[in-house]
Design a protein around this nucleic acid. Structure first.
Lengths: 242, 242
DNA sequence: CCGGAATCTTGATTTCGATCAAACTGCCGG
DNA sequence: CCGGCAGTTTGATCGAAATCAAGATTCCGG
């Protein structure tokens, strides 16, 4: 789904004018001229939940900004066991710079809107723009911090603590200031029970049982499977092991 | 342990002339002048196995190059459970740029030699040198790839597969071309059983039992606890789950 | 609004790794 | 060379999560 790439008097391409990724994403680091050249080569894509964005060991020829939705990154074992190794939200940059083959798989966990551009175009811009590279370094460092936090959860927490940690993770994405104020918070899970299990290194059944336990203990309320209300986030945090 | 910072005719500081980190590490990205200013502020440090390099939630005022030895990065839960979230080898750069408080702890896993320099000095150089920032982005991307590989191991492999994967990881560090050629390989483990357990999300006893199993099956030979001989790396790889 | 498929929950049982407990080994100082 | 101790191995038992097996909901298309 391609869009017109007209350039406004200010020099900012028209489709970028109202784009959220321009403030928080890579595009925010570019000057008008660079943004124009990127916009010329870019296109907006809408993907249904479940669609594959990047295949394992597949040559990647595009990078993207996530404009909305949740993308899950997974790795698998030859016998079919799967582990989700990262979640990305808008306005994250999606793709592994400086490497032709992807070692991971990316899927849309919800409906997703992307702004995609060719690998080559971005790599040219990286060479010209230290600010862009600085932005990428910062996002990568943040992802590394998150991955290491999650390693602690995977390696050392029990099933209940894992599920509580997952709910907190999602709650904090919805509202970053979630536990200090201890307000009640409600949200829809962006993932199925199977996906949650693959994220936590558990089985579907164990995830379900821990959710039931939290429900019985009055820590959360669940309706229609995906909708969660956390009455008291502090009680949830206490059960998360940290 | 400070050294003389004399500058050679070529412009390269004397102590850097013979330093391995100058080819593979951050210093390789600097010109003679930048290297001189970094060398002026740097000092070589020797640390005993077990020494703490960076404390959790402690203000970090130094970055380092690892000149030799193995550094382990750990995260802990309030109740004392621990998880190793990364291993770093020479000539890795050690430290979390652009953040004052460390969220992780770093310890010397073996005797370690570092070349340390003040945070400020390096951050100044980063601003001047896109090549340096590019190097850091590349190392960070590599660490992120490793962390995600390890998440799959932590979340989805059983105890035997985890121990086999760990042995392969160390063997590959000793000799990167380890399984294609399937030559026998021998090495000393840089970590105790407790550290291996904390790396794998297991207990000491389970690690020991899996090593015994691999020994009985003839996949490895163990002498004096730390010395390992892998007769046939391919058989080890087959037990690693991938 | 109905029926069927997909997803989720609950229950029974098994299994793997944790825990508890005791012996063994290698290392170091005296 | 001996004794002590930290680190490791081995054994017995327990428990948490996986697996196997039905049911119950939710979702959707007709």
């Amino acid at each position: 789904m391609s869009e017109r790439k007209d350039v406004q008097p200010s020099g900012v391409p028209v489709p970028c004018l109202t784009c959220d990724a321009r403030s928080g994403g890579v595009c925010g680091t570019l000057d008008a001229e660079q943004l124009a050249s990127l916009a010329k080569a870019s296109s907006k894509k809408r993907l249904e939940s479940g669609a594959e964005l990047i295949g394992d060991a597949q040559t990647v020829e595009a990078y993207s900004n996530i404009l909305s939705g949740v993308v899950k990154l997974t790795k698998g074992l030859p016998d079919g066991r799967e582990q989700i190794v990262g979640l990305q939200f808008a306005p994250d940059f999606l793709g592994r710079p400086f490497q032709d083959e992807s070692a991971i798989t990316a899927h849309a966990a919800t409906n997703v809107v992307l702004c995609s551009f060719p690998k080559r175009t971005l790599e040219m811009l990286i060479k010209q723009s230290p600010r862009l590279e600085h932005f990428l370094l910062n996002q990568t460092l943040r992802e590394l911090d998150e991955a290491r936090d999650w390693m602690l959860t995977l390696g050392r927490k029990n099933a209940l603590e894992k599920v509580a940690s997952y709910l907190l993770l999602i709650a904090r994405y919805i509202d970053p200031a979630v536990d200090p104020d201890s307000q009640s918070i409600a949200f829809d899970l962006p993932m199925s029970r199977l996906e949650i299990a693959d994220f936590l290194g558990l089985t579907i059944e164990t995830v379900s049982r821990q959710l039931t336990k939290l429900r019985i203990d009055g820590v959360i309320a669940v309706s229609q499977n995906r909708h969660i209300v956390v009455a008291n986030p502090e009680r949830l945090r206490m059960r998360s092991g940290c």
